[in-house]
Design a binder for these strands. Structure first.
Length: 728
DNA sequence: AAGGATTGCTTTTTT
DNA sequence: AGCAATCCTT
């Protein structure tokens, strides 16, 4: 051994040590946020190697994101040496499963060069199926059908097992069946199949299962509360014999139920492994007492949980700042101001994160940061690999790898425009269907039949020849060279660079992809495509860039920052209106989301909400989030100077919930208008301007002001920081 | 077949 | 408001 396990253990607290040194049976670590669970996981591996004589290659560690996997690997590398760490299997469920399926393709009844369909591709397949079955896509929304299919797969239900209670279920079942057929014909697996297929593989091939049980003699799972049925089943299949399972979970951080995650897997674990050793990690090393208290106050209101007493040695700390802004712009302006003042205190940009419930909320924030000249990094949003141009280029590559990928064929057969349109595609489709071929092969067949018009025939022949040429080059040249060839032959660059700024940006993205490819000169195309399909944007966070991080609460899981801003704490935003319509359990999940956000903060925490927020284009009043009511007054600094005045207005027309569906209490009040057209006014943030219009709506005066920088804004008089300017 | 205009729909959240 | 899908014109 190149390391000394005893001195490694000496750095742990008693709880952590108990977890790490628990017997080599099933262990469940219930870990609070910031309790060092990643360290515990890594130390557990070291312990297994030292005390159980585990060989590194027999260790399987499953993490939630690739980023977490990378961190785990480098941590283990530091502790045990890089060679040992390299031998271990460390990765997400999806990545690990993809690798197993590649290796066991024959047993699984798959072509080992299968492609992975991401959610966009999945939706494209559903749409095609809906069309092929002649269904009305208004009544049977592809999105909803896809969600139903995905849910079924997460629960390991094959099309034949799909429960039918209503006619709609019957349709889902049929679409699901045809969907699965299409995937098979395309030699593709979707995201969910990556989990489902290994379960099938193991169940149908006991000898294969046996091999992996022996191989993965030590199984560790992080973020166990976010596993779904398929993942749980996999874990159980692998470990029910040797029972060396070590999982880390926090039910208070379960935020992926909409994706099939089921925190009740924790309870299942207790049932299926009665000898389970449970250990609590309650010391928090991340946050100040104040932040932890506030987070606890919020989460303790959930009914569906086991109470935990977390503590920290970071006593006290600055109180949490609560701020109400007029609208999202003012909210963003406030945040920018506070970030600046944090910077003056010595915080780096990268010490700061701004979090929100929905990606759409990033816009106002981005604008404010751009305006202020503060560098920021946006996580998520339109993810790099779902940009139009990137998907196009990947579709070319996918076709090169696999001619039967119909989704990719449809995507690029007319991109860039080459004289192949809807009519031709319909003919290809019909031919492919009758001959039982993929679209690409159907196209080839049509060409030999020569049933197309001259011009169309030549256009299609040229395209088919291009693709065939690439196919011949797969494996003969590097992915980078193949990509260059594709870009040249499709004349993709001039197509993108149409003279607009947007076009330049898109080409820039393609060049970034080219750079990614170039980083791995020896990778096989199919492995590159797999890698690309399995990365998430959170994985792309580079720590060495000094920039403020903008991200959703979901992406924030597992991360920590010295200073955190949680924005949009309004009814309808957090909790999101969809969860309010859904169920009390959904609202509890929203509360956990806030808890996750709050517990990301080490030293400073800011909570903001807006008095009005833009929603589908128009500005709606917003009531402050119900979750804010649970914060004890002593942990807060309420900076809302005008709050008392506002509350009077707010409570009259914004409670509870908000939005067009909430009837405003009728309150007829004759309002005397304070402003008139042409009057000169001053706004605290926007400066001076001229009133363009003054009107009374819902008993409140609203003025439209044209500011001297030509911005036009609406304000609610009495709430907005607006005052008349005397004219001499 | 291509490109522009119009409609109608959307927003949770992501491996 | 912004964007994709669809319609409409050339």
């Amino acid at each position: 051994m190149t390391y000394d396990i005893e001195s490694l253990l000496a750095t742990l607290n008693a709880q952590q040590r108990a977890a790490v040194t628990a017997s080599d049976g099933p262990v469940l670590v219930l870990a609070g946020p910031g309790s060092g669970k990643t360290r515990v996981l890594a130390h557990r591996v070291a312990w297994l190697l030292a005390h159980e004589g585990a060989a590194p290659w027999r260790v399987l560690a499953v993490t939630f994101t690739n980023k977490a996997a990378r961190e785990m690997r480098s941590r283990l590398g530091r502790m045990l040496g890089d060679d040992a760490a390299r031998e271990m299997t460390i990765g997400t469920f999806h990545a690990t499963c993809a690798r197993i399926l590649r290796r066991e393709a024959e047993h699984a009844g798959l072509d080992r060069n299968y492609l992975i369909f991401d959610s966009d591709d999945q939706l494209a397949v559903v749409k095609r199926v809906v069309k092929a079955l002649g269904l009305d896509d208004k009544r049977y929304r592809p999105r909803a059908l896809h969600a139903a299919i995905s849910r079924a797969k997460n629960e390991l239900l094959a099309p034949a097992d799909y429960p039918v209670l209503t006619y709609y279920d019957e349709i889902v079942k049929r679409v699901y069946g045809k969907y699965q057929e299409t995937l098979q014909e395309s030699n593709a697996l979707d995201f969910d199949d990556l989990l489902v297929e290994p379960v099938r593989l193991f169940r149908e091939n006991p000898e294969v299962l046996d091999k992996y049980r022996r191989r993965f003699r030590y199984v560790l799972v992080d973020e166990f509360q976010d596993t779904n049925i398929a993942q749980y089943t996999l874990v159980r299949l692998l470990t029910e014999e040797h029972r060396s399972l070590f999982v880390v979970a926090d039910e208070d951080q379960s935020i992926y139920s909409w994706r099939g995650a089921d925190y009740r897997n924790i309870q299942r674990l207790r049932n299926d492994y009665p000898e389970l050793v449970q250990i609590l990690l309650t010391e928090n090393y991340r946050s100040t007492q104040i932040i932890l208290d506030a987070a606890q106050a919020v989460i303790s209101r959930n009914f569906d949980r086991t109470p935990k007493e977390l503590f920290t040695r970071k006593e006290g700390g600055p109180r949490i700042t609560l701020r109400e802004a007029y609208d999202e712009e003012e909210e963003a302006a406030y945040i920018v101001g506070e970030v600046r003042s944090l910077a003056r205190e010595g915080f780096h940009w990268s010490d700061v994160a701004v979090m929100y419930r929905t990606n759409a909320q990033s816009r106002a924030l981005e604008e404010a940061f751009v305006h202020a000249g503060i560098p920021y990094r946006l996580i998520g949003g339109t993810r790099f690999y779902s940009r139009m141009e990137i998907k196009d280029v990947l579709a070319f590559l996918r076709l090169a790898q696999n001619p039967d990928d119909d989704v990719s064929f449809l995507r690029v057969v007319g991109t860039p425009p080459r004289g192949i349109g809807a009519r031709t595609i319909a003919k290809i489709s019909a031919e492919a269907a009758t001959a039982g071929l993929s679209l690409f092969r159907g196209a080839q067949r049509i060409l030999t039949l020569g049933t197309l018009g001259g011009r169309t025939h030549n256009a299609l022949a040229a395209f088919v020849e291009l693709v065939a040429g690439w196919q011949a080059d797969v494996g003969r040249m590097s992915v980078a060279r193949l990509l260059d060839r594709i870009l040249a032959e499709t004349e993709y660059e001039p197509y993108l660079r149409d003279g607009t700024e947007e076009g330049e940006g898109r080409w820039e993205n393609v060049r970034s992809l080219r750079a990614v490819v170039a980083e791995e000169p020896d990778i096989a195309l199919v492995d590159f495509l797999t890698e690309v399909a399995l990365v998430a944007d959170v994985d792309e966070i580079k720590e060495d860039v000094d920039a403020v991080t903008l991200l959703t609460l979901h992406s924030a899981k597992g991360l920590e920052y010295p200073a955190v801003f949680l924005t949009g704490l309004e009814e309808g935003m957090l909790p999101h209106s969809r969860s309010l319509e859904d169920s009390p359990q959904a609202v509890e999940e929203e509360r956990r989301l806030l808890y996750v956000g709050m517990t990301r903060a080490e030293r400073r925490l800011y909570l903001t909400h807006a008095f009005r927020r833009n929603w589908y284009g128009n500005s709606e009043p917003a009531a402050r989030s119900r979750f804010l009511e649970d914060l004890p007054a002593e942990v807060l600094v309420d900076t809302n100077r005008r709050r008392r005045e506002r509350q009077a207005v707010q409570s009259s027309w914004a409670a509870p919930g908000w939005g067009a569906s909430n009837p405003k209490p009728a309150r007829r009040r004759e309002v005397e208008r304070q402003y008139s057209e042409g009057q000169r006014v001053r706004h605290r943030n926007y400066g001076e301007g001229i009133v363009q219009e003054s009107r009374v709506e819902r008993g409140d005066e609203i003025v439209t002001v044209l500011f001297f920088d030509n911005q036009v804004k609406d304000f609610l008089v009495g709430v907005a920081p607006l005052e008349p300017v005397s004219q001499h």
